[in-house]
Design a protein around this nucleic acid. Structure first.
Lengths: 154, 154
DNA sequence: TCTCATGAAACTTCATATGTTGCATGACTG
DNA sequence: CAGTCATGCAACATATGAAGTTTCATGAGA
């Protein structure tokens, strides 16, 4: 099953924006992500509604970070994306009358719930600032330049 | 994203077969599962290849359990299904050149790996016999009859 | 007014689980 | 041996949702 990469994508966008002094246009971000500007706007819409980022139209417009990176976690971002499904598997029937299927659902459901809870807990432990710090650590190790373009073909 | 219900479905089938004295036809199982016989054959093929079940053609043919339920775990069944994806999310790019994306992948990947490991561990802890026992416990509580049909519209 | 940027809607593409049909194969029955 | 029942397999249809694309409206700044 094709895996949802919106969380991965939006984090990539946010960290690039954090390296930019001014606003970043959807077009520039899309070029860096090798995708379409509309896709950028789509995944950013939820973050804008929550006030994590701001968007401005017209000349000099684009996207700006509008929150404290240390105060926002991956879980917040996941929520802003609309809490997409975490697991690729599910029950065949949600409320089965069959006792066999109830037993199956109970056993699987427990494992599913634990895995989802684990993921959400981990997401809640990682702030955007921590991600950014990890990036800068990698940058220092590599000795590269901190510009957006240097890491992409663009 | 539409969730994969093959594991749930095949477990349902196996537990029903365990309640049957003789072989169960794909057609009968499909009726109980409210699906198509070909779907049953499809999800059972992997289990047959591993020797967990046997299939016989012709009169009196059908599917029979060919393993010790206590010796086979949900993880074995998951393997027999071809180890479908467990998580609905993934990386945007698997081996990115961009350091930002590497940092994102590292953080997310750790959480993903933990969640997958947890699921597989839990699956490995649950045997088919345990599932069957849970079913019988529910049955005793409900006081129903142990037939396949009693739990389904058929 | 012209240009640049987002906002929103509609459409296409793609992957994959699921559902369906048709036919070949093999096993039992009479 | 012919007929029926069942699986095996291939091909095709359907449905869902992420991702990509096109188009037009809107608003901000030069």
């Amino acid at each position: 099953m094709r895996r949802d990469s919106r969380l991965s994508g939006v984090l990539h966008v946010l960290l690039h924006m954090a390296e930019q002094p001014g606003p970043s246009t959807s077009e520039a971000l899309a070029r860096a992500m090798d995708t379409n500007p509309v896709v950028i706007r789509r995944i950013m819409a939820g973050l804008r509604d929550r006030g994590y980022v701001r968007s401005e139209k017209g000349h000099g417009g684009g996207w700006t970070i509008a929150c404290d990176l240390a105060a926002v976690t991956l879980r917040d971002i996941h929520d802003a994306l609309g809490r997409p499904e975490l697991l690729a598997m599910g029950h065949r029937t949600d409320a089965p009358g069959c006792l066999v299927e109830q037993a199956v659902n109970a056993a699987l459901g427990e494992a599913f719930d634990e895995a989802e809870a684990l993921l959400l807990r981990r997401f809640g432990e990682i702030s955007l600032a921590a991600l950014s710090a990890d990036f800068h650590a990698r940058l220092a190790e590599r000795g590269g330049s901190p510009t957006l373009e240097s890491n992409h073909a663009a």
